[in-house]
Design a protein around this nucleic acid. Structure first.
Lengths: 222, 222
DNA sequence: CTCCAGTGGTAGACGCTGTCTACTAAGAAA
DNA sequence: TTTCTTAGTAGACAGCGTCTACCACTGGAG
């Protein structure tokens, strides 16, 4: 059972097909939706036999899980990178938090395909075995750390609660925006952006009232 | 093209199979997930030929869309009913709003299957033709009306903005709770409920600071 | 009464899918 | 040289949605 191939880049051509499969899968999902993802289709796209992809992925769901993992890692990296500005300078904690929100929403809107794949689709059952949860947790940890930077004295549990509130709203808003929900609720496209901005303002205001107003430096006493 | 059958209950036996299909579909989805929903499977469950369901539904997606519609209607009714207490008495506006939140989350948790079907799965493409959006809008309208009851003087646009914030958070929280997200983020089951309660408290507090504190009676001036 | 159209069911076929098994060619290792 | 692994091919099978054809029953119109 291969199952764990395509990890260490030894030979160039050997790994290429597995990698090409991942790319092609993302493209295929973009064209026809994740429901229509078919191993035979991507084999056809790559001009190989319908069985070739099985040398790199144990099953259709295995390929899908791997695609999702790439997305999760890319997403977590984007969130992490939002801590610094264009010049690579670390932003002050509060600005970093706002930047995180912008990045989160921007990612969901600019890569709706990937976002839906990560958070809008039921993960294939093999996701558990493939330890996808570890990659998902990385993204949530960025959020917790960002809040913790503003209030380093807060207990971890309080930070986690607040992070859950922020995540809930951001995730809900992103889900609504990237689905056609706004459209079939009768909201015109022009107002969508304004509404999204408003909702984010609500989160900001709530955080402020929760004490995430100004950066709280580490106190002098132990 | 039949397409619009199973609407008016004329003969008892004629409509039964269509209805049975809907029930069986909901059951099948509960057992094997919406991805695995198969017309042939439900035909088998009902002991009829693999083509019999096609006399009542034009396609697999058509059946699925109809299932979703039933869920949406049931959901909207539940939200609407939350306006009254056990004795059928109308709650005061603010209490009605809180009751709506409880009902929303309770529905998502007690009927995760239906909730995911409505808001967690990509609607089949025929949903547009079948005018599912009308049913979805009914649920959102309940929320807007509930907020409007507290602040009858607010312009519709402001109410819609605030409704979007409430909906975003509630939807995000519900999505997170009914997926296994909390589990693979390492939150133990015991804390889940407390976190959900905390997040709802955040929404409540935000609404309060937005002026939805006390019921605002209709003013005397036009 | 007869005819005939519509309605709800059956059966068969087609092309698609995932996946199992067997086979082959190339290269590395013994 | 022989043998083992790897990455590909090809064939087969069952399950799926859906198209088409066929059959039985109903209820009116003539």
């Amino acid at each position: 059972m291969p199952d764990q191939i395509a990890e260490n880049p030894e030979r160039p051509s050997a790994q290429t097909l597995g990698e090409k499969c991942l790319e092609a899968a993302l493209g295929a999902i973009g064209e026809k939706g994740v429901e229509q993802l078919s191993l035979r289709d991507i084999a056809r796209r790559l001009g190989v036999s319908h069985q070739a992809p099985y040398k790199h992925f144990a099953s259709r769901d295995d390929l899908l899980a791997e695609v999702i993992r790439r997305c999760l890692q890319d997403f977590a990296t984007a969130l992490q990178d939002s801590e610094r500005d264009e010049e690579g300078e670390r932003l002050p904690p509060r600005d970093a938090m706002l930047s995180l929100g912008q990045t989160y929403l921007g990612y969901a809107l600019s890569k709706p395909l990937e976002y839906r794949l990560m958070f809008g689709t039921a993960w294939p059952s093999v996701a558990r075995d493939r330890k996808l949860d570890k990659d998902a947790r990385a993204a949530f940890d960025v959020l917790k750390a960002r809040l913790g930077a503003i209030r380093p004295l807060s207990p971890a549990e309080a930070l986690e609660n607040d992070a859950m509130f922020v995540w809930s709203t951001m995730h809900g808003l992103a889900s609504i925006l990237q689905s056609e929900a706004m459209t079939y609720l009768g909201v015109e496209k022009a107002r969508e952006e304004a509404m999204a901005h408003y909702v984010m303002g609500c989160v900001d205001q709530t955080l402020r009232s929760l004490g995430y107003d100004a950066p709280q430096p580490v106190g002098p006493s132990p």
